[in-house]
Nucleic acid binder design. Sequence first.
DNA 1: GCAAGCATTTCTGTATACAGAAATACTGAT
DNA 2: ATCAGTATTTCTGTATACAGAAATGCTTGC
Lengths: 244, 244
Amino acid sequence: MRASEKAYAALRSDILSWRLPPGTVLTEVELSARLGVSRTPVREALAKLSAEGLTEPQSGRGVVVSEISLDHVDELFELRSALECRAAELAAVRRNPAVFFELHRQLANAGELLRENDPARDSYYRLAVELDTEIDGAAGNHYLAQALKSLRVHLVRVRRLSKDNPGRLRDAAREHAAIALAIANGNAAVASAATTVHLDNSLRHLMDSSLVSVATSPQQIEHPQAAPSGSPGPPGPPGLASKN
Amino acid sequence: MRASEKAYAALRSDILSWRLPPGTVLTEVELSARLGVSRTPVREALAKLSAEGLTEPQSGRGVVVSEISLDHVDELFELRSALECRAAELAAVRRNPAVFFELHRQLANAGELLRENDPARDSYYRLAVELDTEIDGAAGNHYLAQALKSLRVHLVRVRRLSKDNPGRLRDAAREHAAIALAIANGNAAVASAATTVHLDNSLRHLMDSSLVSVATSPQQIEHPQAAPSGSPGPPGPPGLASKN
DNA sequence: GCAAGCATTTCTGTATACAGAAATACTGAT
DNA sequence: ATCAGTATTTCTGTATACAGAAATGCTTGC
């Protein structure tokens, strides 16, 4: 693997997992020492992260991990619903029905299995990701898929602010199943509406369950020799890319 | 100005103006010679362009100016309508009425002035850009604005494939005026609908008036000492950021 | 004459050196 | 004691050198 990719992957992972919280200042020399590569690939990684919006160039010196908090969730979900509703509509028109009937069946089943807790959770997360992937593919729009991809990066970060509870997971599975069914049926209006409903529920769950306060003030990370693997951040769900 | 910004601005301008057509391969050494800076800032510029989607890393060697043609216009406008309709809705809720009543007045006036041709065209382009800006601002959503910004880069490139005619410009001005009025009135549904109508008309005009064939096959640019300023590309409207 | 293998060239990826700018720390004066 | 001015340090931005990989072209065998 190239050194710049290594640096990029390490930093990106650290930011998404809140090991590098918002406001952390990243200096090239320190990172090149910590990651064991020279400044050139570090610069490349930081440029890529800034283009993604995970970091922002500081006025004078260095870059900072970009701010994200509950204040951003409303804006994030406004964009999300615009993109996902349109994606669902397009998918309903262009889908292969068999694929989405099958997803509907599996999601409905996963919703049932979520009564007993832990083992079914991962398989549901996988299904949710697969539904997203299939919708993106069925929509057949490269630019829309790209916009969703760059949005989801921020959603991963914000999702760490809340904790899933089993009840919400069951409801989310049902909502996902409804979306899959509407797309399978080729009903664009219903697919869009089901997506709107699902996102509204997700947003309210996120806001309700996020009364736990999280440290978001600027702070410097310590300098371990190896890549940081401890989890000083708040506990979060293991499925970083789920859709609930 | 920093050398990397200079390289980025020069390359970006060359790509948007079709001086560097899709498929052109960009090699670092050649560019550093042509632009008079070293490879390091050239690399940085290319990375930024690739993040924007204007170039794509070639499998083995170098980067290529990304493909764009009429085949992409449908996808581009699907995303565009998703984003701009939502932006119009949000703007209708959060706007300052006076601003959009004033824009409506000016746009209606510009539509009238477009009877006599040339001098009014630039002022209309300016108004269209200002409407976009005000809508983005009124929508008050940083992530949505960012998504629109990165989309508009591609729209600039595709717009060069067609030529505006005065009749379409007058219609477009009227449609813009209708959007501004709906937002001023605080009517989200009408604002969204007016945007949908406008974009549909724009798309059909673009497809209809683009029967002129344009060379899109891969080709290498010649190596002038100074930055390329000649316009070997097809003629296009001067307003690179208009909205019709 | 054509194809396969090898040599050469060229380009990318990375490291490092150097210059300029910005922030910090220190010193002196009021 | 505090503030201002200066000196120092540190970090970024750029250039360049070097190594490895990929593509090109040449040579040789069939």
